[in-house]
């Protein structure tokens, strides 16, 4: 379980996160939803430690990440995998080398163990045939899948995904969403996904928090989100006619 408590963050005098507390459960896909610019990415970056909060704390299964010293931080970091918005693959390395990279840098495995693990993870995301390709030679959806493989290669306990289906067609989006959910259940990972995609919300939202102007103003699941009486959340989800019709 990942928890954050009373997180505040100000950039250039502008408060981006206001007293955000939330918990993200193990073995579930936890969603952070909200309009663009409401601080979803900043919250995610605070959770992984790329952004330091002005106040508040982040706990990984009870271990305080914000207060941890260098070594404790390193231990927790090794349990974290992250899928970035554009994939963030290292463009000078092949698909295979990208997935191998965390193992090379951080693990004590033997060469053949590493190769097996890379092979396994690429197979898991359905990309074993693309191992030798460069990031510039693969499609956006494939890049995301490589990103997922790289994120889970260290046997991560925690998986973060920032807008995993931005820039993808609906069909590919659904495949990526399903892959994330399957992996979460299969390995009992604590997964946190930032999204503003309605489809993902209703498909994989086992636990959802809604961010509005830097604050968390609602939390629930895909089953009760459509019945919400929070005005700002209603405006957000019923912006499209399709969803309005679906509700009626």
């Amino acid at each position: 379980m990942i928890e954050c408590k009373n997180i505040n963050k100000t950039f250039n005098g502008k408060q981006i996160l206001m007293d955000v507390s939330a918990s993200f459960e193990q073995g579930k896909t936890n969603l952070i939803i909200g309009a663009s610019g409401t601080g979803k990415s900043v919250l995610l970056k605070t959770l992984v430690g790329l952004v330091h909060p002005d106040s508040g704390s982040v706990l990984y299964d009870g271990r305080d990440f914000t207060l941890a010293d260098k070594e404790e931080k390193q231990v927790i970091r090794r349990e974290i995998g992250m899928l970035f918005q554009g994939g963030a693959l290292f463009d000078s390395k092949t698909v295979e080398e990208n997935v191998l990279f965390p193992l090379d840098m951080l693990s004590e495995m033997s060469k053949s163990e590493k190769e097996d693990r890379v092979q396994f993870c690429l197979q898991r995301v359905g990309l074993d045939h693309a191992a030798k390709l460069m990031p510039s030679e693969i499609s956006g959806g494939m890049a995301k899948r490589v990103g997922i493989a790289r994120a889970i290669v260290m046997n991560s306990k925690y998986l973060y995904c920032d807008e995993p289906n931005s820039g993808l067609d609906p069909q590919t989006s659904i495949r990526i969403d399903n892959l994330i959910q399957e992996i979460t259940h299969e390995y009992n990972i604590t997964t946190v996904v930032v999204t503003h995609d309605m489809n993902s919300m209703l498909e994989i939202g086992e636990n959802i928090i809604f961010m509005f102007k830097g604050q968390k103003i609602w939390e629930g699941t895909k089953d009760n989100i459509l019945g919400t009486d929070v005005k700002d959340l209603q405006n957000f989800i019923f912006a499209s006619k399709l969803i309005r019709d679906m509700k009626n």
């Binding site: 970056k45 992984v48 430690g49 693959l89």
Partner: peptide
């Protein structure tokens, strides 16, 4: 610069590098 804007730098940092 390219590595920074495509979040490759962040990816390294998240790994603890």
């Amino acid at each position: 610069g390219t590595m920074r804007i495509t979040e490759q730098v962040d990816a390294l940092e998240v790994m603890g590098i």
